[in-house]
Amino acid sequence: MSIDIPWVREELAQFLRLTDLYRPPDPPGVSIISSWRSNRGSEAEIVASAQVVERILDRVLPRWRTEVSVHRNKSVNRWCQHREAAQRADAVLQRDAEVRQRMGDAPPQLSAGQMHPWAWEGARALWGNGHFREAVTAAAKRINAEASNKIGRRDISETKLFQVAFSLNDPKPDQPRLRLMPNDASETYRSIHRGAMAFAEGCYAAIRNPNSHEDKLPELSEHEALEQLAAFSLLARWVDTATVLTA
């Protein structure tokens, strides 16, 4: 689904208006010398707006929590990081197409926020705090849970679950299958399901299992974690779009 740019820009503008700092006028007949500044909106209005704006920022600038600096004057305005991120996001929305055109062809950008919701929603809270290895592990757990729910198997998990789900054997009363295409007896049908089974096994054996021992491994770089998350996003998409075949 594409971004509704006019709506998003208005939400960002409204947040910036609410968090704008100004000096309230002195009471009549009183002159106060002070550098104190106040937000134009009430705290309740700002918090409500921030709930929406944070989701916008996660989509437009997925790394804003770590890339946009937290200014020293945050004690004066707790929303300064949000404000700078909102201003940057608005510039991206206004001028991204122009910048790409002027800069010439650029490689496609991989965005965590545009991955399958099972992957990104499972990872986003930890991702925003820079816990990339744990974030990928959380996404793997979410996808395992969704696959388990889809075929009604809670007695097995991870590698075994996907071996059963994508097995080329006919379904049994207690063993539904996931099918990515109708069975036309072709090599393509067999190849797709063997590949999906092997891919899932690789995701859990080579990514999820090592990541579960994050205390013994160095933190992943964000780029490497993004590659791992993309692998689970693809698996999630296959599971989500697959047809359940029952006996």
Rank of each mutant, 00 (worst) to 15 (best):
I5V: 13
K160D: 09
M115R: 07
A231I: 01
P107V: 01
G152Q: 06
F15Q: 07
T19R: 12
K74W: 12
E146D: 05
I143P: 06
S148E: 06
N129K: 14
A112P: 04
V76D: 15
Q114I: 00
R177E: 08
H116N: 06
G41N: 06
C203H: 11
A138H: 07
E227R: 11
I5Q: 08
C203Y: 11
E11P: 00
F15P: 01
N211T: 03
D20S: 15
S42L: 03
G130S: 10
R72Y: 14
L57G: 07
S167L: 03
R237H: 11
V8S: 08
A123H: 11
G113D: 04
S34P: 04
S157V: 00
A231N: 09
E121S: 08
Q101S: 02
D26I: 06
S35F: 10
V244S: 11
L93I: 03
G195L: 06
R88E: 07
V52H: 09
S35A: 13
M1D: 12
P182D: 15
D184Y: 09
R78S: 13
W238N: 10
S148L: 01
L234F: 10
N183I: 02
W120K: 08
S35E: 13
D90I: 00
L12P: 01
H193G: 12
A44L: 02
N183F: 06
A236C: 03
A85Q: 04
L178Y: 12
E54M: 04
L57K: 09
N77T: 05
L234E: 10
